[in-house]
Design a protein around this nucleic acid. Structure first.
Lengths: 160, 160
DNA sequence: GCTACATGCTCTAGTCACTAGAGGATCAAG
DNA sequence: CTTGATCCTCTAGTGACTAGAGCATGTAGC
């Protein structure tokens, strides 16, 4: 039995995230100490690791819910799990194609900048005229973020 | 001068999105008819198209704000625009690498499913044991969604 | 002029998967 | 006994919209 902080360290999740998953019903409410602190068993840790790994792979919580449902009922067919994974893979592949197209256009745009004033800026011009690109970059699906991106803190709004 | 619906059609944006951009200060509040309907000039349409294109390329609204600021001040150096585009390009490239890794692992996982019961399901097993993958897929940055993904409507929550 | 129906308006709340912070209680070590 | 880490609950914020309520206005055909 371990406290939430220890579980966070073992799973790589953050403490509030674990509480959030409990609130979302992805894990059962764990037992508590007399003073009300959560106590987790190894099975809970495994379940949380499962969730974490699936999130790292970009699965949505709803998908993970279904996947967890299957692990709870091992006698069921795994067709659902397979379907979920295949759909997700297809989405990733589509997204890769779109991102490649984006990269191509953005590379072209960036290369064209020779410095100077904004009035002659090719970057801005290219952004303004969609005409220049051959409609090769379609609007793109939102992508489920994965766990723990510990990069730039949210930039404060700057106004002109 | 055109109504918001016509502008939506010309730019490919949705009507509420245009109002949202106005609220966010990305475009000036347009003139109104006597009855209070918005009326847009061609310059507004160009500005909205600029925003749309930049969003399609995955720029965040804050970046777009800076870019628009430059178009409003053509005498300034375009270094900012160049920097923003380069940073964004780097992010896209990083994301591509990560997505490729994800695709690799997910492909491996999906291929291993031979049907049958969940108890033996390789998909679920692979999801449970991060050990199987060589930590080749790092957690991934959230990705700015692009405009107008007209795919699956928000699935209603299903609980087991 | 009348009737539909489309289009417009404002305002509020919901989405997703967390994250941040307030304000307080409890725990372990020295 | 004090200090500092950890824990608790609760609320609100993030980004970029989207959905819906409830109402006003515009337009086309009769």
């Amino acid at each position: 039995m371990q406290a939430i902080g220890a579980v966070a360290k073992r799973t790589g999740l953050k403490v509030p995230t674990i509480r959030f998953y409990e609130q979302e019903g992805l894990i059962d409410a764990p037992g508590r100490t007399d003073s009300g602190r959560r106590l987790y068993a190894d099975a809970d840790v495994r379940r949380l690791s499962f969730i974490r790994h699936a999130r790292t792979l970009g699965f949505e919580l709803d998908d993970i819910r279904s996947l967890l449902d299957l692990t709870d009922h091992p006698e069921r067919s795994c067709a659902d799990a397979d379907r979920i994974a295949r759909v997700h893979l297809a989405e990733i592949e589509q997204r890769l194609v779109q991102l490649s197209a984006l990269k191509t256009e953005l590379t072209r745009i960036v290369k064209s900048c020779a410095g100077g004033k904004a009035a002659q800026c090719r970057v801005i011009e290219a952004l303004a005229d969609h005409v220049h690109c051959e409609a090769d970059h379609a609007p793109v699906k939102p992508v489920k973020r994965a766990t723990q991106s510990r990069r730039a803190p949210p930039a404060k709004r700057r106004r002109s």
